[in-house]
Amino acid sequence: MSQDSTNSAVPVPGRSVRPTGFGGAVRFMVRSMLTLFVGLKVTLKKLMGRKVTEQYPHEKPVMSGAFRSAIALVSFDDLNGTHDCIACDACELICPSYCITVRGDRLPDSKKKRATEFLVDFSTCSLCGLCLAVCPTETLKYSSGYDDAGYNRGWIHNLLEPYADDPEAPELLALLTARDEAKRAARKAARAAKEAPAAKPAPEAETTPANPAPEGSDG
C-alpha cells in the first residue's frame, strides 16, 4: 500500500495505480506507451556503449599486486637473476599444511648452502604467508599466476624449475661472495656515517643512505 503511494508517478501494469475515469485511462495508456521508449533508450545506449568482455585466452587480465597464488622464488638482480634460497628449511618447518619440501647442499669448497630441490604441493597450501614472513633471505614471494591447473593429486610446483640454467657452482659462489662483500661494506659505511655525526651533528649525515645495497628484490 505504502509502495503504491510512493511509486504513483511510475505506472506499473497490473498494480492499482491507474487513475480513474476515461481521461485518466487515456493518460495512463499514453504514459505507459512512452515508458516503452524510455526502455529502448536505455538498451540503445548500452548497445553503443563500452563492452566489458575480456577475450580471455586472447587477452589475459593483469592481476593486482595483492593477488596471492602459489609461492615462487624471487630472482635477484645482484645475483645475476637467480634466487637466494639457502635451504634453511624455515619455510618447511613453519608451514601449517606441510606443503613445502626443501632439500639443499653446500656449494663445493664453501660453507654456503643452496637449495637443490624446492617443491610445493599447492593443492594443500592455504596461502597463509608464514613462509614468506619467515624467509631469512626474502627469496619467497606470491606468484601472480591464476590459470595453473593440476590434472592429478600428485600435482607439485617445482619452484627451482625457472632456475634450471643457473650459473655453475664456482661462478655462483663468486656472485654470492661479491654480494656479501658489498653488503658488509655498506653496513660498515652506514655505521661510520652514524658515528661521525655523533661528534658534530650535521644535517647531511641523515640524508646519506643507511643501507645502499639492500637485499634487492624484483617483487
Partner: peptide, 12 residues
C-alpha cells in the same frame, strides 16, 4: 545485439 545490449561482445 543481445551481447551488445548486455555490455558483452557476443560470438567472437
Amino acid at each position: 545485439v543481445a551481447g551488445w545490449v548486455q555490455g558483452r561482445l557476443g560470438p567472437m
